[in-house]
């Protein structure tokens, strides 16, 4: 249960693009073809290893429906990573990416790592958005890009882990202020040298220093 870092993620994107399925595939390693509409947000968690360090991912899967937009906005601040998901078989979900990105950039902290994900790559025959288009969009907006399939699990692990790697690198570079929990990053209890109940207060500078070296 102990971890070196804890990262908070959010998953955003239009309704029906497979956000909940991506989370379920990542946390439970299963696919549920018929999934209920997410109401508000749902929580999931998993431990991963990067650079032989245990990293805990806490993921908030948000509702894509417009009605929940104002609620889900509350989660932007305080997330270290975001998975922005569209459906490669539905062009309009790709077209809405700019709106999502603007929303995310406006409400989140500037260092939040955003990973662009084209989901449902298993449905090649119904593809409406070319992979190159996704790549181009990601390049233009400075995002990491990946096509995934929550059904076949293709690239699902990679999507979550690569996002974590990016965050981890930013920590190493000292870009993230890990003292501020509003950034969505926490240092694990055993890594904090002082009182475990006050992880952010004084002890974190030491840990950060360790990370830099």
């Amino acid at each position: 249960m102990s971890y070196a870092y804890l990262f908070k993620y959010i998953i955003i994107g239009d309704t029906g693009v497979g956000k909940s399925c991506l989370l379920l595939q990542f946390t439970d390693k299963r696919f549920q073809p018929v999934h209920d509409l997410t109401i508000g947000v749902e929580f999931g968690a998993r431990m991963i290893t990067i650079d032989s360090k245990q990293i805990k991912l806490q993921i908030w899967d948000t509702a894509g429906q417009e009605a929940f937009r104002s609620i889900t906005r509350s989660y932007y601040r305080g997330a270290a990573g975001a998975l922005l998901v569209y459906d490669i078989t539905r062009r309009e979900t790709f077209n809405h990416l700019t709106t999502w990105l603007d929303d995310a950039r406006q409400h989140s902290n500037s260092n939040m790592v955003i990973m662009l994900i084209g989901n449902k790559s298993d449905l090649e025959s119904r593809r409406e958005v070319k992979k190159e288009e996704g790549e181009a969009f990601a390049r233009e907006h400075g995002l990491v890009f990946m096509e995934t399939s929550a059904k076949t699990a293709a690239n699902v692990e990679e999507a979550f882990i690569n996002t974590a790697k990016e965050i981890y690198e930013k920590i190493q570079e000292g870009v993230f202020d890990i003292n501020n929990e509003a950034n969505g990053i926490k240092i694990g209890p055993q890594h904090s040298p002082t009182n475990p109940s006050l992880p952010g207060a004084t002890g974190s500078s030491g840990s950060q220093g360790g990370g830099c070296c």
Partner: peptide, 12 residues
């Protein structure tokens, strides 16, 4: 109010 509860929890 489950939605507020979740946001409050999210906010540490």
């Amino acid at each position: 109010n489950a939605n507020i509860q979740k946001i409050v929890a999210f906010e540490n």
